[in-house]
Design a protein around this nucleic acid. Structure first.
Lengths: 163, 163
DNA sequence: TATTTACTTGACTAAAAGAGTGGGTTATTT
DNA sequence: AAATAACCCACTCTTTTAGTCAAGTAAATA
């Protein structure tokens, strides 16, 4: 089992996409500023998410990413798998060769745990997450911060933005 | 969530102790040879297990470690906690300060996952593990290997061992 | 067609964590 | 006293993470 910021960032970014991508693609710059994740790092993550066919990209001005399937059809385990983190808790990749090619004493335990974790995470879809109350309130807070914090030039040069 | 060889080794070693420690303490050297875990590494782990009051030690010849409570009263989560791995899957230690001091979009998800994992692991005691069929058969295999593989000098100098 | 905007790729790196080693000390038994 | 085994500490090697940087490609607009 390996769950680090990589997997967490990926899920957070995908949830952001689910929340904001109703009408049109979302740029990584937007996600970056809302979620405080470095743009370059997001690019790496989305390269993997795209290879995993969880998102599709639209190039050019006004482009960005959108979910490649419905929110209901994407679960958390999908996302974590796509960015190369695994829900496998064994040391041998589930192969049972943990002690000199033979099975170690606790192999089955970790195997069971893996199943458990995967079951839990694959039972949670993006759609479910977007419906949660605390997710919605955090989302609103982030939308509030965003315009003020990340586009301070708006206050001066409104024309270039609206042109 | 952090589950690495450290936690896995600790559980394996504790299970070995449960399986072999019925009559008297077990030395780390024995566990090391049966489970293929470096002796020095085991010493580190058992220092933590002792601080966590999961094992007690007996020094001197014939000494070793024994479980400090019954097999029924020690569960897998206890062991993993003791060696400083955690079942916490959040990035903020469960505090909810994951995004500049405020809560990130997916905090609750990781919090729920942590609960789930902890629930699962704390529901499995050493006693339960020792009763599993596959554990018993692996244990027998290891007991067979042990004498031949790790004491080749027995074949030559039987006296020093039996003296 | 030139430019803008945005995605793509890959190399690179600093810092942290993991895994393991080695040397020496202390306590206990034989 | 000698052997055994726990105890303690410092250190190293390797891998992974998290993130940066730079150059490039593709699409849309003006």
């Amino acid at each position: 089992m390996k769950l680090t910021t990589r997997g967490r960032y990926a899920v957070t970014a995908m949830l952001d996409l689910a929340l904001h991508g109703k009408d049109g693609p979302i740029s990584l710059a937007d996600i970056s500023s809302r979620q405080d994740i470095s743009l370059s790092y997001l690019e790496q993550l989305f390269a993997k998410l795209r290879r995993g066919e969880l998102v599709s990209s639209v190039r050019g001005p006004g482009g960005g990413y959108r979910l490649s399937r419905s929110e209901e059809a994407i679960n958390v385990a999908d996302i974590i798998d796509a960015v190369n983190e695994s829900t496998d808790a064994t040391n041998c990749g589930g192969k049972g060769i943990c002690q000199n090619g033979e099975m170690c004493l606790t192999h089955h335990l970790w195997d069971d745990l893996s199943t458990q974790i995967h079951l839990f995470l694959s039972g949670i879809s993006l759609a479910q997450l977007t419906r949660k109350e605390h997710v919605q309130s955090i989302c609103e807070r982030q939308d509030g911060h965003e315009s003020a914090a990340n586009n301070p030039q708006n206050l001066i040069e409104t024309e270039t933005v609206n042109a």
